[in-house]
């Protein structure tokens, strides 16, 4: 065993154990903030696995999108809505837990079966390495164009949804007078950042 391959093995074991333990902790920990931070760790170890597979572009994209954007937004949401609330205990909690556990175990069994029955071609295809970026770009704009565009439509939908949610407190009528309110006026006018010097109010000149 050479130095490189043993390093690879050690890295793989560390990364996958953090991955498995981390994702278990994400699900099982009672503190949601810990779960969110651990989720970042899980994403990072997935990125590490990509690196092990010589897919550095995918790894960087994983870090940028999942850790940098998705996870930060999850954390953001958690911290903005950090209200202590005593929720009423849900009836039949044990049964629910058992059911969801069974579903997960079933899924795991299915995946393991698939993994063992598929005739994997060993060794796998040679990694393209640095050319991966170009290849990904080519695929995205040729045979994977439709999924790519569909994903962008999905993003557009969620963006519109976010705008609707954020702007729901704009009323069509003025609450106090009952008159129809001009939607344009409700928007705050952009504050004049740069005052042009006029004759009546000249700007004080700097020395």
């Amino acid at each position: 065993m050479t130095v490189a391959s043993s390093t690879q093995l050690v890295c793989f074991v560390i990364l996958s154990s953090t991955l498995v333990l981390g994702s278990l902790a994400v699900v099982l920990l009672p503190n949601i903030v810990y779960s969110a931070f651990l989720l970042a760790g899980v994403f990072l170890s997935v990125a590490g696995l990509y690196l092990l597979l010589n897919a550095s572009f995918v790894a960087a994209a994983q870090v940028l999108v999942y850790v940098g954007a998705v996870n930060v937004l999850i954390l953001f949401a958690i911290m903005l809505v950090n209200k202590k609330e005593n929720l009423a205990p849900i009836p039949g909690m044990a049964l629910r837990r058992l059911l969801s556990g069974a579903v997960c175990a079933g899924l795991l069994g299915l995946l393991i079966r698939v993994a063992f029955t598929t005739p994997w071609a060993l060794p796998g295809p040679t990694p393209v390495g640095e050319d991966a970026t170009i290849r990904i770009g080519e695929h995205l704009f040729s045979d994977y164009l439709l999924p790519f565009e569909l994903a962008s439509v999905l993003l557009l939908m969620s963006m519109i949804g976010a705008i609707v949610l954020a702007r729901r407190d704009v009323f069509s009528t003025d609450i106090i007078t009952g008159e129809p309110a001009d939607q344009v006026l409700i928007e705050k006018e952009r504050s004049p950042l740069l005052l042009e010097p006029t004759d009546s109010a000249p700007l004080r000149s700097s020395p």
């Binding site: 970042a40 990072l44 550095s56 572009f57 960087a60 994209a61 870090v63 940028l64 850790v67 940098g68 954007a69 930060v72 390495g129 640095e130 970026t133």
Partner: peptide, 14 residues
Amino acid sequence: VGVGIFLWIALSSI
């Protein structure tokens, strides 16, 4: 690294 500058952007997002 082949992904050079992209690596920096990704890392700074952590």
